[in-house]
């Protein structure tokens, strides 16, 4: 039994070791693995302005390659990750950030879903509260007129 499982375990471990390669060409890779790792991380957060829904790390566009090289150049020059990000944002705007920044113009984006959820919860709660607070009313007594008609009908039936 254990023997039979081994190939599967190895296969799954093998798959886990595979990581997407992105679009980074071998000639772009920095010699320093630490810097290269930082460059990859930064690149994954930057939108390719040509293909828009890809990061520059994923994109094959020429402009994405240019930006990847510039990111690496800034890192080699000693910039911090934040400085590199700012460098790109200064030129292309917040638009290039795949994760929108948290600031006054994006509050709606960040709080909107939570506000909607709270509003929905409030609506549901108040709906059921309203139903519970007003139990079905017992039917009112018959008026004298109605009782007379009822008696008459019952009598006729006999």
């Amino acid at each position: 039994m254990r023997r039979a499982l081994l190939p599967f375990v190895l296969m799954i471990l093998g798959l886990a070791a595979v990581t997407p390669a992105g679009a980074v060409n071998p000639d772009e890779v920095l010699d320093d693995p630490v810097l290269e790792e930082r460059a990859r991380d930064i690149s994954k957060g930057l939108r390719c302005v040509v293909c828009q829904n890809q990061s520059i790390d994923d994109s094959d566009a020429d402009l994405a390659r240019d930006l990847r090289l510039i990111v690496r150049e800034r890192l080699v020059a000693g910039d911090s990750d934040a400085q590199v990000m700012d460098f790109v944002v200064d030129r292309y705007g917040d638009y290039v950030l795949l994760k929108p920044p948290f600031k006054a113009t994006t509050y709606v984006l960040w709080f909107g879903p939570i506000a909607l959820l709270l509003a929905a919860v409030f609506a549901v709660v108040s709906f059921y509260r309203g139903r519970a607070a007003a139990p079905a009313k017992a039917p009112a007594d018959l008026t004298d007129e109605e009782r007379r008609r009822l008696d008459k009908l019952l009598k006729d039936d006999r």
Partner: peptide, 13 residues
């Protein structure tokens, strides 16, 4: 040739 000026101008195409 290396796109530095273009990126400084925020060029997309």
């Amino acid at each position: 040739p290396d796109s530095h000026a273009a990126i400084d101008f925020g060029v997309t195409g």
